[in-house]
Design a protein around this nucleic acid. Structure first.
Lengths: 222, 222
DNA sequence: CGGAAGGTTGAGGAACCTCAAGCATGGTGG
DNA sequence: CCACCATGCTTGAGGTTCCTCAACCTTCCG
């Protein structure tokens, strides 16, 4: 659930202006682990990052997928509640807690980000609690299309040419853990959508939505 | 997922100090509907409130259950993304957006609340995406026990007398919509726990956990 | 006493998971 | 250049969990 299509989402890389430290990551590097001491706040300056939680027996749930401008890792208590791992090459800004407390400008921006992310989490709760496998995958794909798949869907710009290629940046396993499914179910749904002509799989992590509206119809929101 | 056991949660009814308006509600009254104009922020001064979203075909997901001190309805864009409905008698404080923007004190508290609620949403995503029906119900019950069922579980104070009565404040249908199950499944799980002697149902919305630790063992977090 | 609302229980079915085998793709080394 | 392997993905068969539909029970209240 990226921030790209979120109304009110923060502009990119805004902590730069506040003298934040920053770090570079390759795909599938861990920024911090669940249980690590939490004493800073983080911002995605570039790339995509996922937050996930593990159950003791190894079950995993990806709880958020964050894009440029999103913030994460804000302390509540003194431990991180999730593990943060990059999906792509990424740059992350880090800001000390004391800096945050002192700046009303950062506070305001923080609030805006948090509220936007909270709404994404609400939407995702509906997906996890009430949607079928097909609806979950369709919703996932729609969230990768800027300005569609959110409440404020712009609709097709050009009816006759309503196609779009999206890059997933996630393996089937990660998608499954995000959508509360198994890898096999995700694979089967994608194969089925392919068979029905709704999508084309160009590469494993690159999918063409042949008719964006048709995918949108499958999300359960219509 | 109440705030009562959340480390860092706000103290009760803190907006009082900022000259907030407040309103009284009976059980099952709507505070606002999804789609209503969003121009204020709300705080639970007393009682319990749930936020839920509906799909067009009537499926419902309760996304948050809020207790005293929690805030909700914060605008992002100009429409509410959820419906807010009381579960019990409740009092709600309302603060104008302009008041919030002007006060760093409110901002700070807002941030603290939002981060705490976000962690609850993370936990709930794990429940919805990865837990079995029994694990969901057990987790739900544990969240009604102060200082247990969260990461910071205090453990039994007195091993030999580790029993606790909890009041649900929710119908089976509401619990089902919160846990991503059907009313029948919730009922069956409760009957099963009863049969196994883990809980006793004193009244429909009042349950005794005969051994809190035993219930905790069923949550999937052990 | 009768009705309404909420809850329980049972039988059967659908959706998704598990387990297992096989298929692509890409990289490495002979 | 091609065999080989590793990783990730797909497909199939069968099983489990939960859902659906329907009947019945319980409690409360007029």
């Amino acid at each position: 659930m990226g921030a790209s299509a979120r109304p009110g989402a923060a502009p990119a890389a805004s902590f730069d202006a506040f003298g934040a430290k920053s770090a570079q990551y390759k795909p599938h590097e861990v920024v911090f682990y669940e249980g690590d001491p939490a004493d800073r706040i983080f911002e995605v300056a570039r790339g995509t990052i996922m937050l996930f939680k593990l159950l003791p027996d190894g079950r995993r749930q990806v709880v958020e997928v964050l894009r440029t401008g999103d913030i994460f890792g804000i302390p509540n208590g003194d431990e991180q509640d999730c593990t943060a791992e990059t999906l792509t090459d990424a740059r992350v800004n880090m800001l000390d807690l004391t800096q945050v407390e002192g700046s009303p400008a950062i506070q305001r921006q923080l609030t805006r980000c948090l509220v936007a992310q909270m709404q994404s989490l609400h939407e995702h709760a509906v997906l996890l609690g009430r949607k079928s496998a097909t609806e979950r995958v369709a919703s996932f794909l729609m969230h990768l299309v800027p300005d569609r798949g959110t409440n404020a869907c712009a609709g097709p710009v050009d009816e006759s040419n309503d196609t779009r290629q999206v890059k997933l940046h996630m393996t089937r396993q990660e998608i499954a853990d995000y959508l509360g499914l198994t890898i096999e179910t995700v694979s089967r749904v994608i194969s089925d959508l392919k068979r029905r002509g709704v999508i084309s799989v160009e590469r494993n992590d690159e999918i063409r939505l042949n008719k964006v509206c048709a995918v949108c119809q499958l999300t359960g929101r219509h």
